[in-house]
Write a protein that binds this DNA or RNA. Structure first.
Lengths: 181, 181
DNA sequence: ATATCATGTGACTTGATATGGCACATGATT
DNA sequence: AATCATGTGCCATATCAAGTCACATGATAT
């Protein structure tokens, strides 16, 4: 191995797993998991007629209600979900999944950095580094365009349909939350 | 802002800059800068007839000789550079830049993670999460293919040519290291 | 041969940051 | 008024890229 093993495996070969209140969540690298988590939440909300509380969602994701509220904040500001306080309150979808794409969610999350590869300096004085940044930057920008274009073409309702399909084929309960209307 | 400001800007608006022994290097995010740095080094080595020591390279990159040795280790193992100990030793290119692509370097570095976006769990039992992972993973894999294909088409000699072009147009000294044969 | 120089590498330190979590304010429902 | 739920400031924790030290190994020069 090069680069002084920076991976996810520990000496005993196990994954690095955060154990929080008895629940587990595995994040292999120093990656931003909020997009993945939000999607998980949105699809579950779609299966759920009543508002879901941050507490419920937190348990589902194996995380803390506070984290849920904070991550959902962007979605609320963008108008994709709404939150209600007090008895019977919680989170609900503010529009159908057919009117949301991966790109919409990504943007609502504040369009976090996509790549784990970085350029050494923003505006280097070294001409060599300028040339390197230009070449590398060009590839990265192209990839970013591709990726975001791809995100824009995936409607959340399509993901939901894929879920329905999976659910139809295996009759076991799945998550910690029931998939009921 | 959403997601509890995780960006690169501090309250005073300045970038987070690592100051090391008087030199500065800016890494906006938790990104892996080794590819960018290695490229910088390789191009400089190409301009340098004599072997370059880790000390020289370290000064050039604003980092430490040990870091340089460690990062270069993968390149040596892959046969792109060679290192010689003792007086007059140091690092030299083991083959011309025209025979190396961005992809080669990336692989020699151990093919570090490309994306800052992660899936919540590797093999979730929740069917909803499975559907999410599938959708997100598909987009990410597609983008990865694109990006690596792009890397494979960029020869380092092309980046060097771009540098030569820049150097011809501006006659100022640039880096901390002279661009001489 | 031996002093010097340069790489090779284990072990530890430092700094950045995604996420976890508490505490308390705000507002809605019963 | 009691309870429930969100909103959010503040701090804690874990992980990891990069920095640093220390020392071994090997090559060159005098």
């Amino acid at each position: 191995m090069l680069q002084r093993r920076q991976g996810a495996l520990r000496d005993d070969g196990s994954r690095n797993v955060l154990v929080t209140g008895g629940l587990k969540e595995a994040f292999p690298l120093r990656q931003n998991g909020s997009l993945s988590r939000i999607l998980h939440v949105l699809l579950h909300m779609d299966q759920h007629r009543d508002p879901m509380t941050s507490e419920q969602i937190g348990q589902m994701l194996g995380t803390n209600p506070t984290v849920v509220r904070r991550t959902m904040a962007g979605m609320r500001e963008a108008g994709y979900v709404s939150s209600v306080k007090g008895h019977g309150g919680g989170w609900t979808l503010a529009r159908p999944l057919s009117e949301m794409t991966l790109l919409d969610v990504y943007k609502a999350l504040g369009a976090p950095e996509l790549f784990a590869l970085g350029l050494a300096t923003d505006a280097p004085t070294c001409l060599v580094e300028q040339a390197v940044n230009t070449a590398l930057g060009r590839s990265l920008e192209e990839a970013e365009r591709q990726l975001l274009a791809g995100f824009g073409q995936v409607k959340l309702s399509e993901i939901a349909a894929d879920f329905e399909h999976r659910a139809a084929r295996s009759k076991h309960g799945t998550c910690k939350v029931k998939h009921v209307a």
